[in-house]
Amino acid sequence: MMRRKEARAGFLFALPWLFGLVAFMFYPLLMSLYYSFCDYSALRSPVWVGGDNYVELFHDEVFWTCVKNTLIYACVSLPLSMVVAIGLAMLLNTNVKGMTVYRTIFFIPSLVPMVSLAMLWLWILNGDYGVLNTALGAIGIKGPNWLSDVAWTKPALILMSVWGVGNAMLIYLASLQDVPTSLLEASELDGANAWQKTRNVTLPMISPVIQFNMVMGIIGSLQVFAIPFVMFPGGTPARSTYFYATYLYDSAFTYSRMGYASAMGWILFVVILLLTLVALKLSNRHVHYGGV
Protein backbone atom coordinates (compact mmCIF):
# COMPACT_ATOMS: atom_id res chain seq x y z
CA MET A 1 0.00 0.00 0.00
CA MET A 2 2.76 2.38 1.08
CA ARG A 3 4.84 1.22 -1.87
CA ARG A 4 2.12 1.86 -4.39
CA LYS A 5 1.53 5.34 -3.08
CA GLU A 6 5.21 6.09 -3.33
CA ALA A 7 5.39 4.71 -6.85
CA ARG A 8 2.48 6.89 -7.94
CA ALA A 9 4.13 9.97 -6.45
CA GLY A 10 7.41 9.12 -8.13
CA PHE A 11 5.72 8.74 -11.46
CA LEU A 12 3.89 12.04 -11.05
CA PHE A 13 7.15 13.82 -10.21
CA ALA A 14 8.82 12.35 -13.27
CA LEU A 15 5.90 13.24 -15.52
CA PRO A 16 7.29 16.48 -17.02
CA TRP A 17 10.39 14.68 -18.16
CA LEU A 18 8.47 11.65 -19.41
CA PHE A 19 6.45 14.03 -21.54
CA GLY A 20 9.58 15.91 -22.67
CA LEU A 21 11.28 12.66 -23.51
CA VAL A 22 8.42 11.50 -25.69
CA ALA A 23 7.66 14.87 -27.25
CA PHE A 24 11.11 16.25 -27.97
CA MET A 25 13.52 13.34 -27.82
CA PHE A 26 12.06 10.09 -29.08
CA TYR A 27 11.13 11.23 -32.53
CA PRO A 28 14.53 12.79 -33.33
CA LEU A 29 16.31 9.79 -31.81
CA LEU A 30 14.33 7.25 -33.79
CA MET A 31 14.50 9.29 -36.97
CA SER A 32 18.27 9.59 -36.75
CA LEU A 33 18.45 5.83 -36.27
CA TYR A 34 16.27 5.35 -39.34
CA TYR A 35 18.37 7.84 -41.37
CA SER A 36 21.47 5.89 -40.51
CA PHE A 37 20.13 3.11 -42.76
CA CYS A 38 19.25 5.53 -45.55
CA ASP A 39 20.76 7.52 -48.33
CA TYR A 40 19.67 10.88 -47.00
CA SER A 41 21.03 14.35 -47.68
CA ALA A 42 18.53 16.37 -45.63
CA LEU A 43 17.39 17.95 -48.91
CA ARG A 44 16.30 14.74 -50.63
CA SER A 45 13.85 12.32 -49.09
CA PRO A 46 15.51 9.34 -47.40
CA VAL A 47 15.91 6.10 -49.38
CA TRP A 48 16.58 2.85 -47.54
CA VAL A 49 20.03 1.41 -48.25
CA GLY A 50 20.29 -1.12 -45.44
CA GLY A 51 23.65 -1.32 -43.68
CA ASP A 52 25.55 0.40 -46.51
CA ASN A 53 26.48 3.44 -44.44
CA TYR A 54 27.93 1.28 -41.68
CA VAL A 55 29.87 -0.87 -44.14
CA GLU A 56 31.21 2.25 -45.83
CA LEU A 57 32.25 3.74 -42.51
CA PHE A 58 34.15 0.60 -41.65
CA HIS A 59 36.24 1.03 -44.81
CA ASP A 60 36.58 4.81 -44.48
CA GLU A 61 40.17 5.81 -43.72
CA VAL A 62 39.20 9.29 -42.59
CA PHE A 63 36.75 7.77 -40.14
CA TRP A 64 39.50 5.72 -38.55
CA THR A 65 41.83 8.70 -38.43
CA CYS A 66 39.15 10.60 -36.54
CA VAL A 67 38.54 7.68 -34.19
CA LYS A 68 42.25 7.56 -33.40
CA ASN A 69 42.54 11.31 -32.88
CA THR A 70 39.47 11.37 -30.66
CA LEU A 71 40.65 8.48 -28.50
CA ILE A 72 44.07 10.03 -27.99
CA TYR A 73 42.47 13.32 -27.07
CA ALA A 74 39.91 11.77 -24.70
CA CYS A 75 42.37 9.46 -22.95
CA VAL A 76 44.64 12.33 -21.98
CA SER A 77 42.23 15.20 -21.59
CA LEU A 78 39.57 13.41 -19.53
CA PRO A 79 41.65 12.25 -16.53
CA LEU A 80 43.75 15.40 -16.62
CA SER A 81 40.72 17.69 -16.58
CA MET A 82 39.10 15.69 -13.78
CA VAL A 83 42.14 15.94 -11.52
CA VAL A 84 42.61 19.64 -12.28
CA ALA A 85 38.94 20.39 -11.68
CA ILE A 86 38.85 18.64 -8.31
CA GLY A 87 42.13 20.25 -7.29
CA LEU A 88 40.94 23.72 -8.18
CA ALA A 89 37.60 23.19 -6.49
CA MET A 90 39.33 22.15 -3.26
CA LEU A 91 41.60 25.15 -3.48
CA LEU A 92 38.56 27.38 -3.89
CA ASN A 93 36.83 25.72 -0.99
CA THR A 94 39.39 26.87 1.55
CA ASN A 95 38.64 29.63 3.97
CA VAL A 96 40.72 32.42 2.53
CA LYS A 97 39.98 36.12 2.37
CA GLY A 98 38.63 37.33 -0.97
CA MET A 99 37.39 33.91 -2.00
CA THR A 100 34.35 35.26 -3.90
CA VAL A 101 36.71 37.17 -6.16
CA TYR A 102 38.99 34.18 -6.72
CA ARG A 103 36.07 31.96 -7.58
CA THR A 104 34.80 34.45 -10.11
CA ILE A 105 38.23 34.74 -11.68
CA PHE A 106 38.65 30.98 -11.99
CA PHE A 107 35.34 30.73 -13.75
CA ILE A 108 36.11 33.41 -16.35
CA PRO A 109 37.49 31.16 -19.11
CA SER A 110 34.15 29.34 -19.16
CA LEU A 111 32.31 32.60 -19.75
CA VAL A 112 34.15 33.89 -22.78
CA PRO A 113 32.34 33.02 -26.02
CA MET A 114 33.93 30.26 -28.05
CA VAL A 115 34.93 32.40 -31.03
CA SER A 116 36.77 34.96 -28.92
CA LEU A 117 38.40 32.15 -27.02
CA ALA A 118 39.64 30.51 -30.21
CA MET A 119 41.12 33.82 -31.36
CA LEU A 120 42.81 34.25 -28.02
CA TRP A 121 44.36 30.81 -28.26
CA LEU A 122 45.56 31.33 -31.83
CA TRP A 123 47.31 34.38 -30.51
CA ILE A 124 48.74 32.73 -27.38
CA LEU A 125 50.00 29.69 -29.28
CA ASN A 126 51.60 31.59 -32.14
CA GLY A 127 54.96 29.89 -32.80
CA ASP A 128 57.10 33.02 -33.08
CA TYR A 129 55.83 35.59 -30.66
CA GLY A 130 53.01 33.74 -28.89
CA VAL A 131 52.70 34.42 -25.19
CA LEU A 132 53.24 30.76 -24.33
CA ASN A 133 56.41 30.30 -26.36
CA THR A 134 57.76 33.63 -25.13
CA ALA A 135 57.22 32.48 -21.55
CA LEU A 136 58.83 29.10 -22.30
CA GLY A 137 61.72 30.91 -23.96
CA ALA A 138 62.28 32.93 -20.82
CA ILE A 139 63.00 29.75 -18.88
CA GLY A 140 65.19 28.40 -21.64
CA ILE A 141 62.78 26.04 -23.40
CA LYS A 142 62.26 26.36 -27.12
CA GLY A 143 58.50 26.13 -27.57
CA PRO A 144 57.10 23.89 -30.32
CA ASN A 145 55.02 24.98 -33.32
CA TRP A 146 51.72 24.42 -31.57
CA LEU A 147 49.53 25.28 -34.53
CA SER A 148 51.38 23.80 -37.50
CA ASP A 149 53.27 20.75 -36.24
CA VAL A 150 51.18 17.57 -36.47
CA ALA A 151 52.81 16.26 -33.31
CA TRP A 152 51.82 19.31 -31.25
CA THR A 153 48.31 20.24 -32.34
CA LYS A 154 46.63 17.65 -30.12
CA PRO A 155 48.66 18.58 -27.04
CA ALA A 156 47.64 22.19 -27.73
CA LEU A 157 43.96 21.22 -27.74
CA ILE A 158 44.38 19.19 -24.55
CA LEU A 159 45.99 22.18 -22.91
CA MET A 160 43.00 24.30 -23.87
CA SER A 161 40.56 21.73 -22.53
CA VAL A 162 42.28 21.71 -19.16
CA TRP A 163 42.09 25.45 -18.98
CA GLY A 164 38.34 25.33 -19.65
CA VAL A 165 37.42 23.12 -16.69
CA GLY A 166 35.36 25.90 -15.10
CA ASN A 167 32.02 24.10 -15.31
CA ALA A 168 33.25 20.85 -13.77
CA MET A 169 35.11 22.84 -11.13
CA LEU A 170 31.93 24.66 -10.22
CA ILE A 171 30.01 21.42 -9.80
CA TYR A 172 32.72 20.04 -7.51
CA LEU A 173 32.75 23.27 -5.58
CA ALA A 174 29.02 23.03 -4.97
CA SER A 175 29.34 19.41 -3.89
CA LEU A 176 32.16 20.20 -1.47
CA GLN A 177 29.67 22.32 0.44
CA ASP A 178 27.85 19.12 1.34
CA VAL A 179 30.84 17.58 3.09
CA PRO A 180 30.01 17.94 6.77
CA THR A 181 32.66 19.93 8.60
CA SER A 182 32.02 17.77 11.65
CA LEU A 183 33.44 14.72 9.83
CA LEU A 184 36.52 16.63 8.75
CA GLU A 185 37.06 17.88 12.25
CA ALA A 186 36.63 14.40 13.66
CA SER A 187 39.25 12.97 11.35
CA GLU A 188 41.55 15.85 12.17
CA LEU A 189 41.26 14.95 15.84
CA ASP A 190 42.28 11.41 14.85
CA GLY A 191 45.50 12.96 13.57
CA ALA A 192 44.81 12.73 9.85
CA ASN A 193 46.85 14.98 7.58
CA ALA A 194 45.46 16.94 4.62
CA TRP A 195 45.92 14.11 2.14
CA GLN A 196 44.32 11.54 4.44
CA LYS A 197 41.37 13.83 5.07
CA THR A 198 40.88 14.26 1.33
CA ARG A 199 41.30 10.58 0.63
CA ASN A 200 39.15 9.23 3.43
CA VAL A 201 36.49 11.87 3.95
CA THR A 202 36.15 14.40 1.15
CA LEU A 203 36.46 12.19 -1.92
CA PRO A 204 34.03 9.49 -0.72
CA MET A 205 31.54 12.19 0.28
CA ILE A 206 31.53 13.81 -3.17
CA SER A 207 31.83 10.52 -5.06
CA PRO A 208 28.38 10.72 -6.72
CA VAL A 209 29.42 14.06 -8.18
CA ILE A 210 32.78 12.69 -9.32
CA GLN A 211 30.82 9.98 -11.04
CA PHE A 212 28.65 12.60 -12.70
CA ASN A 213 31.64 14.53 -13.98
CA MET A 214 33.24 11.33 -15.20
CA VAL A 215 30.21 10.39 -17.27
CA MET A 216 29.85 13.91 -18.62
CA GLY A 217 33.58 13.92 -19.31
CA ILE A 218 33.34 10.74 -21.36
CA ILE A 219 30.46 12.16 -23.36
CA GLY A 220 32.07 15.57 -23.76
CA SER A 221 35.57 14.47 -24.69
CA LEU A 222 34.39 11.92 -27.25
CA GLN A 223 32.15 14.59 -28.78
CA VAL A 224 34.80 17.35 -28.71
CA PHE A 225 33.78 19.85 -31.36
CA ALA A 226 33.68 23.61 -31.00
CA ILE A 227 37.29 24.62 -30.41
CA PRO A 228 38.89 22.39 -33.06
CA PHE A 229 36.08 23.30 -35.46
CA VAL A 230 36.78 27.01 -35.11
CA MET A 231 40.57 26.86 -34.77
CA PHE A 232 41.51 24.13 -37.24
CA PRO A 233 38.93 24.07 -40.04
CA GLY A 234 39.03 20.72 -41.83
CA GLY A 235 41.35 19.28 -39.19
CA THR A 236 44.51 20.93 -40.52
CA PRO A 237 47.43 20.23 -40.58
CA ALA A 238 47.08 16.87 -42.35
CA ARG A 239 43.91 15.93 -40.39
CA SER A 240 45.82 15.82 -37.11
CA THR A 241 42.96 17.75 -35.45
CA TYR A 242 40.10 16.08 -37.27
CA PHE A 243 37.88 14.60 -34.59
CA TYR A 244 34.86 12.32 -34.61
CA ALA A 245 32.33 15.09 -34.09
CA THR A 246 33.94 17.45 -36.60
CA TYR A 247 33.87 14.77 -39.29
CA LEU A 248 30.29 13.98 -38.32
CA TYR A 249 29.29 17.64 -38.62
CA ASP A 250 31.04 18.00 -41.97
CA SER A 251 29.36 14.86 -43.24
CA ALA A 252 25.95 16.12 -42.17
CA PHE A 253 26.10 19.75 -43.27
CA THR A 254 29.09 20.29 -45.57
CA TYR A 255 28.96 17.06 -47.51
CA SER A 256 25.15 16.76 -47.26
CA ARG A 257 25.35 13.15 -46.15
CA MET A 258 22.93 13.14 -43.24
CA GLY A 259 22.46 9.37 -43.44
CA TYR A 260 26.17 8.73 -43.19
CA ALA A 261 26.47 11.21 -40.32
CA SER A 262 23.59 9.50 -38.50
CA ALA A 263 25.39 6.17 -38.79
CA MET A 264 28.45 7.81 -37.26
CA GLY A 265 26.24 9.26 -34.55
CA TRP A 266 24.79 5.91 -33.63
CA ILE A 267 28.16 4.16 -33.56
CA LEU A 268 29.40 6.86 -31.22
CA PHE A 269 26.25 6.46 -29.17
CA VAL A 270 26.85 2.74 -28.68
CA VAL A 271 30.51 3.28 -27.83
CA ILE A 272 29.77 5.97 -25.27
CA LEU A 273 26.98 3.90 -23.80
CA LEU A 274 29.27 0.90 -23.32
CA LEU A 275 32.09 2.99 -21.91
CA THR A 276 29.70 4.71 -19.55
CA LEU A 277 28.26 1.41 -18.34
CA VAL A 278 31.73 0.03 -17.70
CA ALA A 279 32.79 3.22 -15.96
CA LEU A 280 29.67 3.20 -13.80
CA LYS A 281 30.12 -0.47 -12.90
CA LEU A 282 33.74 0.06 -11.94
CA SER A 283 33.12 3.25 -10.02
CA ASN A 284 29.91 2.16 -8.28
CA ARG A 285 31.95 0.23 -5.73
CA HIS A 286 33.55 3.48 -4.67
CA VAL A 287 30.49 5.65 -4.81
CA HIS A 288 28.96 6.53 -1.57
CA TYR A 289 25.33 7.64 -1.53
CA GLY A 290 23.19 9.11 1.17
CA GLY A 291 25.69 11.14 3.12
CA VAL A 292 26.73 9.57 6.40
Binding site: M119, L122, W123, N126, G127, D128, Y129, N145, W146, L147, S148, D149, P237
Partner: peptide
Protein backbone atom coordinates in the same frame (compact mmCIF):
# COMPACT_ATOMS: atom_id res chain seq x y z
CA UNK B 1 58.21 26.32 -43.61
CA UNK B 2 56.11 24.83 -40.82
CA UNK B 3 57.92 26.88 -38.21
CA UNK B 4 57.54 29.99 -40.34
CA UNK B 5 53.82 29.43 -40.85
CA UNK B 6 53.38 28.88 -37.16
CA UNK B 7 54.35 32.53 -36.68
CA UNK B 8 51.59 33.86 -38.97
CA UNK B 9 48.77 35.71 -37.28
CA UNK B 10 45.01 35.54 -37.74
Amino acid sequence: IQAYKSGFGV
